[in-house]
């Protein structure tokens, strides 16, 4: 697009900049607290810069780095495999439901949309996975439930519906089948949409701890989120007065406090926060494999 020198750009920058500050400020605090001395934070409250610098929170979280590194590996594996397969399956079906000339498309839309409204709920889903699928303690169960997420399929449909029918017809004229029309024409044309949805898929896998909480007890398969979530929720539970009444003797100073909590948040989010442009590119290239040849 042509460069437009305009004074109104200045105002846009001011407005967006102000919003950006609101978004970035909490992160600044999180980073600052995670590098602060716990006692100082407790005494003097939060600050945008550490008053007393300390790496204690990270030292504590990384005490047994073996498990954390292994969990990073599990999470990365699940996120990469899940989001590549998930994005592929979802964009394929999304293309099909944009085709209004295809009679079954309305039925398929409904079939995909319905689960957005009706879910089986915790107990039935758990019974189904454990008793029927027998997938407890497998990496598979961390991946397949999120492969096709209804609202992301519909979002993809939204992006794809902008493609003019004539382009698809020209594909027919070239003798291409629907499958290759999708991979060679439609997918490359919705690159930016795929990148965005792919990112959402990736984050969905990365951030999930619910599936692993339910189905994973094998240490070798514990993803990062569950590992850190557990550290925090255990501390949370032990802090409650309920717990005091059971009378367990634990040195409270050893429980993770604010600094550790913030360090946890950064250990989880940090890597993708900085890798996410790369993740987007990776996913788009992944799905548009072969498009360049055409």
């Amino acid at each position: 697009m042509s460069k437009r020198v305009n004074s109104s750009n200045f105002f846009i920058h001011i407005l967006l900049g102000a919003i950006a500050v609101l978004c970035i400020l909490p992160i600044v605090f999180v980073v600052s607290i995670s590098f602060s001395d716990e006692q100082d934070v407790l005494k003097n409250g939060y600050a945008a810069f550490p008053r007393v610098f300390s790496l204690e929170a990270y030292r504590m979280m990384l005490k047994s780095p073996g498990q954390i590194l292994h969990s990073y590996l599990v999470t990365t594996f699940v996120s990469v495999v899940g989001s590549v397969i998930g994005l592929t399956l979802s964009s394929m079906v999304a293309y099909v439901i944009t085709r209004k000339d295809f009679k079954a498309s309305r039925f398929i839309t409904l079939a995909v949309f319905f689960p957005l409204l009706f879910q089986a709920g915790l107990v039935p889903f758990y019974i189904y996975v454990v008793k029927f699928l027998k997938l407890k303690d497998t990496l598979t169960i961390l991946i397949i439930p999120y492969l096709v997420i209804p609202w992301l399929v519909l979002l993809l449909k939204g992006y794809m519906s902008k493609i003019p029918k004539s382009i698809i017809e020209s594909g027919w004229l070239d003798g291409a089948g629907e499958v290759s029309i999708f991979f060679r024409i439609v997918a490359p044309m919705t690159k930016s949409g795929l990148a965005t949805v792919g990112l959402f898929y990736f984050l969905n896998y990365w951030n999930d701890w619910w599936l692993s909480l339910l189905f994973i007890s094998d240490k070798a398969k514990i993803p990062l989120q569950l590992l850190l979530q557990r550290i925090l929720s255990n501390a949370e539970f032990m802090r409650s007065t309920l717990f005091q009444s059971v009378g367990v003797d634990i040195d409270l100073t050893k429980l993770p406090g604010d600094t550790a909590r913030m360090a946890t948040a950064l250990l989880v989010a940090g890597p993708i926060l900085f890798a996410f442009p790369f993740i987007q590119r990776f996913l788009v290239r992944g799905i548009t494999v072969g498009s360049i040849k055409g």
């Binding site: 399956l89 079954a104 079939a111 995909v112 889903f125 996975v129």
Partner: peptide, 28 residues
Amino acid sequence: LDHRGLWLLALPALVVVVLMQYMPLPGL
């Protein structure tokens, strides 16, 4: 002709949806 192609594109996702979303529903 195209129906086969379109069904082929939709099928994997539908299988996943049926397997993960519809099958547990009777549990309601």
